[in-house]
Design a protein around this nucleic acid. Structure first.
Length: 314
DNA sequence: CGTCTTTGACCTGCGC
DNA sequence: GCGCAGGTCAAAGACG
């Protein structure tokens, strides 16, 4: 019964589903995880593909190995309704993060959230469009406290649309993976309630590697080197060095990698920002985010490219 | 010249 | 059927 207490129960008043568009649900817990009021790191990952639904959830503590791991699994063959799917999914254990909430609040990072439940109760639903069937793929959304709207995640994206969102002063941007064989899309929008939070929704799964050696883009060159450390080949089942982040990837979910990479990118930005704001603050845990990353040259690389000039140290 | 962003038009689903 | 909102297309322009 203990494990059930961590499941989002629609009848449990301590769990709530934040309103969001379409069929996306952000589960949070009023007593501990109010995304609008707290800035906690609660890193966890999801593995999700067409034949198997599973999730690895890990509480993250800066100085300790992951203390909480939960796994939920299911099968698309079971024809679960959306509610059933999400109720099978175990969100991060609030207690695992609460022990370090003071430190984590300083990191100024929000993470994230899984989701996905498909419209109309079907796992994959099809929509006829000009004689063709369009398959709506599973979606994953997460929230990141970031000043950067479009979080880098190791893939190249082409923006194909932007729309104003009702009841929100911030537009929603639509991106598509630039790989012609890849159908992954993502939406990026800012929370209307907390403009510092970026909501990114991925749809689909990459069928290719991240960008290892991109074109002559300064950012991507650094990023490629960065991801070269972190992103295993899709065929690899070795443990990812992302364990440094308290994350663990299961199977081959490139979407999961995208999410985690974006989260780390954001974490790096926020960490840089944090250091810039309080350069003399040495009270951070020695295993804070940036210190767990492979060394990057000072002011260069990922941080140097992501962080707006105004945020950088001179 | 290739790539990417912008942006108005268009398409689709849904509620009334 | 109509209107609204979300999502997508594609032409035009910007940029390196």
């Amino acid at each position: 019964m203990d494990s059930d207490s961590n499941k989002p129960d629609p009848h449990d008043p301590t769990w709530s589903s934040l309103p969001s568009s379409d069929s996306t649900f952000f589960f949070t817990r009023d007593d501990d995880n109010d995304l609008h009021n707290t800035h906690k790191i609660t890193d966890f990952t999801w593995s999700y593909n067409s034949s198997d639904l599973s999730a690895d959830v890990e509480g993250y503590q800066p100085s300790d190995p992951p203390t909480t791991t939960a796994t939920a699994s299911g099968s698309s063959d079971s024809h679960l309704l959306p509610g059933d799917q999400t109720s099978d999914i175990i969100p991060p254990n609030p207690s695992a993060s609460s022990s370090s909430s003071e430190d984590l609040a300083d990191k100024n990072i929000v993470v994230l959230f899984k989701i996905e439940s498909n419209i109309k109760g079907s796992y994959d639903y099809e929509v006829k469009k000009k004689g063709q069937k369009r398959i709506r793929q599973p979606r994953f959304a997460f929230m990141t406290k970031s000043e950067v709207d479009h979080l880098e995640d190791g893939y190249r994206w082409r923006k194909y649309g932007q729309k104003a969102v009702k009841n929100s002063p911030f537009p929603r941007s639509y991106y598509r993976c630039t790989n012609s064989k890849c159908t992954v899309k993502k939406r990026v929008e800012r929370s209307s309630e907390d403009p510092s939070i970026v909501i990114t929704t991925y749809e689909g799964q990459h069928c290719h590697h991240t960008i290892g050696f991109p074109r002559n883009s300064g950012f991507l060159s650094h990023e490629g080197a960065f991801l070269g450390h972190f992103a295993p080949p899709m065929s690899s089942h070795h443990q990812s060095p992302f364990l440094y982040q308290g994350m663990q990837f299961s199977h081959d979910s490139s979407v999961t990698r995208s999410i985690a990479q974006a989260s780390i990118s954001s974490a790096s930005v926020q960490q840089a920002h944090h250091q810039q704001q309080a350069p003399s603050d040495t009270t951070d845990s020695p295993s804070s985010v940036s210190q767990q990353l492979p060394p990057l040259s000072s002011g260069e690389g990922l941080l140097g490219d992501i962080v707006p000039p105004g945020m950088r140290n001179p």
